[in-house]
């Protein structure tokens, strides 16, 4: 298993560099929306300027560490029929996707951490000296869980491609809801109470917002425990979904194309 992964990781790494320009464009492009949202909030409430800068900088980081694109890949592969080659090989296709996620996220990590350090020299709001060791530990656990949930969510929708030809349209709808409920448009604390309540039970908060809340200190005590509890529930839910959809999808598979 370990050897298989090391080979897949290497291959994905080589592949990533074959698309180096696309990777850079894609990465910087994804920062535009949070930056603009940040400026909007700073304009609305100038007193909270520093809090917004920190929140949205953390958002950009968490967003890059958790975002998953597997639904688009899977939809294309199933629709064009190239997925067949993944099915006939004796290694579950999900490992290819996991390897790809690890490689890209590792790249983002080595770019974003020094970038943060550099920016913190000039922008005091980004300095991290207030954060305790326990917070860091919880943050990284929540971040890992977020990446796993978001990946499984994307993969679940990708597998629906066995039934629906244009599954990304469906995914887009959920993404739109997620934009509000995950903390990407506004910090959780600014959401109307009823949305806050809903978001507590839905998976979206645990894909992005929850780790940031731990870092900013806006979630504390037992709420952190409940948060991890729900995140774990959703994580298991999507694992089960992937497992069942994979089994059922293969029976449904039309293996299109000559």
């Amino acid at each position: 298993m370990f050897r298989k992964y090391s080979v897949l990781l290497r291959m994905k790494y080589v592949e990533m560099f074959a698309y180096r320009l696309a990777t850079i464009v894609w990465m910087t492009g994804a920062m535009v929306q949070p930056l603009i949202t940040m400026m909007v909030w700073m304009n609305i409430d100038p007193d909270q300027e520093n809090a917004f800068i920190f929140y949205f900088a953390a958002l950009i980081f968490v967003e890059r560490m958790t975002s998953a694109w597997d639904v688009w890949e899977l939809e294309r592969e199933i629709r064009e029929g190239t997925f067949s080659y993944q099915i006939v090989r004796p290694f579950h296709p999900i490992h290819w996707a996991i390897a790809e996620n690890i490689v890209y996220k590792a790249l983002f990590l080595v770019i974003l951490i020094p970038a943060w350090g550099l920016l913190a020299v000039f922008i005091p709001a980004l300095r991290l000296d207030q954060i305790s060791a326990a917070q860091w530990l919880l943050f990284f656990c929540a971040l890992l869980l977020a990446a796993v949930i978001r990946f499984l969510f994307s993969y679940t929708f990708g597998l629906l491609g066995f039934w629906v030809t244009k599954v990304t349209a469906l995914y887009g709808m959920f993404e739109a809801v997620s934009l509000f409920l995950s903390g990407r448009i506004a910090p959780m604390s600014l959401l109307p109470p009823f949305l806050k309540t809903i978001s507590f039970y839905l998976p979206f908060r645990y894909m992005v917002g929850f780790p940031i809340e731990i870092l900013t200190g806006s979630v504390q005590g037992m709420d952190i425990v409940y948060g991890f509890g729900w995140a774990a529930v959703w994580c298991m839910f999507f694992m089960l979904a992937v497992l069942l959809l994979w089994k059922a999808g293969l029976r449904k598979n039309q293996a299109v194309g000559g």
Binding site: V14, E15, A18, S84, Y85, V88, R89, G257, G258
Partner: peptide, 18 residues
């Protein structure tokens, strides 16, 4: 899967960009 192989003339198993 280890004892069989499938080649489809119209599809590629080779990774495209490398």
């Amino acid at each position: 899967k280890k004892i069989m192989s499938l080649v489809m003339g119209q599809k590629s198993q080779l990774i495209w960009d490398i």
